[in-house]
Structures are given as structure tokens and as C-alpha cells.
Design a protein around this nucleic acid. Structure first.
Lengths: 138, 138
DNA sequence: ATCTTGCTTCAAGATGTGTCAAATTAGAGA
DNA sequence: TCTCTAATTTGACACATCTTGAAGCAAGAT
């Protein structure tokens, strides 16, 4: 089941990784990144991702995850699907159970995009001293 | 205008920063983080954030930002509000223009939460060897 | 005071999201 | 085979999000 429906950005494709604060994110990059952040834009999905990542062995089955939440199984299944289609996790069936594990490259990429600029680079400390009379102080 | 309506998580309050993959994110932490990721869950907001961050002087006025998009002013204003209420950016009026700048601490926190576990720690390489017959290999 | 520009807020409509119950698929075992 | 458990899919509903035109507000210019 793993990567049958290739996610827009997955462990295979590693496009833009530049920090957001370094140069203006091009529209195409934004279109690629937004679905990743959207996948994390929910408390339950954040916890699911964390639970899977922290689980012993690096993976956990749905039944384990289900126990941590006060919702129905379809709801958990829905959120796992969102994470999977975003490329953040992969699933594998072994016997009766389905196991999920994280794709650390994707998380690393998201982390890198948000990373602060290494201190002391261009545009960092410069105050817009004479900006009172002109909007675009360029 | 800056921080009048205190965001749930802003530059002032710096709660959980642990990497997601290190220990299970508690529900409260997930509730705090999700709105931050939700604020970035849109291509336009990602670009807005990047544009503001990269702009000379560390800030830019709405008129500059507006020029970069093919939408109406209310739409840009709406997305800036989303970013502002999440605590990712702050606004300040100077004369006719309103300037936005990023809150780097918040971005740094999000980056830290997604950061990979420093290689070679517990649970990293352990394969679920005998997991065929038991779901929770704990 | 009036006009003009920059930006935000409002109201309304189209689209997307998250939840559940019910139905469905997949595999293990008797 | 038939049955049981694990997990997903489907359908329906309530609710949130995003867009726009129109209106409103703030500050500078005339």
C-alpha cells in the first residue's frame, strides 16, 4: 500500500528546502509545502504523528493509536489517511494489523523550511531607519 | 495594534518545544501547536510569511505584498490576519502604511517541534523483529 | 471640511473539513 | 465454508474556510 498514490511531496521527491526566511518562497514551492502543513493543522494528527514516531520500534498499529483517542475508528483512519497522502507517514499491512511509521525526511524538510536564518546575515538587524515616508524601503 | 488580542501562542509565551518524535505530544501541546500549523496550511500565507521575512529591513507594508498576488486586497488582509492571530507576524501602523514583520521565535519553535531526533537515540534503529503476532510490540 | 489613498471589516456565497453510523474489505482461525 | 476482529470506505451532516464586492476607518493632502 505504501506509496501507490504518489504524494505531491514524499520521501522520494525532495524539492525546495531553503529556509522560508532566506529568500521569497516561489509559488510552486508554496503549493508543494502547504499540503504538508495542512496535514499537521489538526491536534489529533499532530498527536498521531508523534505517537507513531515515538512508538517502540518506530511504528505502531492502528489499534494502539485508537486507544489514545476518544473518537471512533473511522475518524482515526481518516486522519491517518490525511497524513499518509501528505507523505508524512507510510502504512504496511502485516497479517491482521496495519502498521504506520513516519517518513523522517519529510518532517526534516518542513523543519528546515521553518528554520531561522543563521544569525548575522543580510537584512537581519537592519532597522528601517528612513522608512517613514516610503512604503517599500528597497 | 501589535499584541492586543493575545494569540494562544505568541512571542511572549514559549511552551513546549520538544521535538515531536521524542516523546508523545500531550493533548494540550497539540492544541497549542495545531493553530500554528494551520496558519501555514495555505500557499498564499506561506508566501506572505516568506515575503515579509525576506523583505529588506525585515518588514514590508501591505501594498508591497499585495503586488505579489493576483487577488483582491481583502483577501491579502484576511490571510495576514490569520498569520497575525496565530502569532507568526506582528503589524504596526506608521503613518499611512501598515508594516508587518515576522516573530522569529514562533517559527523557530515550530521548526524545533518538527526537528528529527539526534541520530542514534532510543527507539531509532530497533526493528520490530517479533511483531508478527502482537500489535503493540511494547 | 473634503478628497484621496491604504487597509480592514462586513456580508454572502461556494467549497472544504471532520465526525459519526453503516457498510465494506482483508486476513486469521475454526 | 462461516465467523470474528482489524481497518477502511461511504454517505450524510454540521461547521469552518476562503473569496469577493461593498462599506468603513485612519491618516495625509488640498
Amino acid at each position: 500500500m505504501n506509496q501507490e498514490l504518489l504524494p505531491a511531496v514524499g520521501p522520494d521527491r525532495v524539492p525546495c528546502c531553503e529556509p522560508l526566511v532566506r529568500e521569497p518562497l516561489p509559488p510552486a514551492g508554496a503549493d508543494e509545502l502547504a499540503p504538508l502543513f495542512k496535514a499537521l493543522a489538526d491536534p489529533m494528527r499532530l498527536r498521531l504523528l508523534s505517537l507513531v514516531a515515538c512508538h517502540d520500534g518506530g511504528e505502531s498499529c492502528v489499534c494502539d493509536l485508537l486507544a489514545a483517542f476518544d473518537v471512533t475508528a473511522p475518524s482515526v483512519s481518516y486522519h491517518l489517511k490525511v497524513l499518509r497522502e501528505a507523505g508524512l507517514i507510510s502504512s504496511e499491512r502485516r497479517g491482521t494489523w496495519v502498521y504506520y511509521r513516519v517518513n523522517p525526511e519529510v518532517m526534516a524538510r518542513m523543519s528546515a523550511v521553518l528554520a531561522p536564518r543563521p544569525a548575522g546575515l543580510a537584512g537581519e538587524g537592519r532597522l528601517p531607519s528612513g522608512a517613514q515616508d516610503r512604503p517599500g524601503n528597497a
